[in-house]
Amino acid sequence: MLDILSELLPRLPGILGALTLVSLAIGISYWQKIGLEKSMSVAVVRAFVQLIAIGYALQLIFDSDNPLWIGVIVGVMLTVAGLTSGKRAESIPKARTIALLSISTSLALTLGTLLALNVFEPTPQSVIPIAGMIIGNAMTATSLSMARLRDDLKSSRSAIESALALGAPSRVAAQVQLRTALATGMTPLVDSTKTVGLIALPGAMTGMILAGSPPMEAVQLQIVVMFMLVGAAAFASMIATFLTYRQFFTKTHQLKL
């Protein structure tokens, strides 16, 4: 812990400088009676503590060079992502299991492909941050798809049952809703992929440029990251949509809400 602090100390003026902006925001909240002062302060403290903790943990893991740690860290990330996403879609039976399954399958497929094609080295330095990005994006896609499908099935009940009553199997009866749920999960990433570089420089690239890498090197990495995240969102949406759909239909093509 001491060496971390000694590393942090020279950067403290910079952190304190950025903190003045936060106090300004807290000031505005107080002045305009927005009432966010408390949660803003809590958020600032939490971010500080959480980031120091993960920085410390990563430093230990990189130093120890034991691949088991990758598993532990990724496991924690997956659990938190699964619980968060599952909580968003609470009224769906087995929501947490579905979310966890969607996110981890998406991670396995995406990361597996990248490692198999030798795009990244299987070192903690690349696997952990990349897994984090994949999990974060898969989580968003999963939450969006699950919630959308649940809402649409509820609001389209009469159309779906009309189709079922005409002898359509449940997959055909819910076709429109399934497609919408899939699209909803993937849209944010497809949109940000379309506008990447035009509106904002994405995170991984920004980080590399700030750290002093040549822009073209940063761009190369960003392209890989972007494509990987599109894949991750697609896998996660597909699995989440399919598993959620299965919760709402019986084998005998009945809609249960």
């Binding site: 009469s158 159309a159 009309s162 009553a165 005409l166 002898g167 199997p169 429109v176 005998t252």
Partner: peptide, 20 residues
């Protein structure tokens, strides 16, 4: 078979939902 049954036994709902 449930889909055969539904073809043999048609149903009209309270308010008609037209497909696109």
């Amino acid at each position: 078979d449930v889909l055969t049954l539904r073809a043999r036994v048609g149903m009209v709902m309270q308010s008609a939902t037209m497909f696109a």
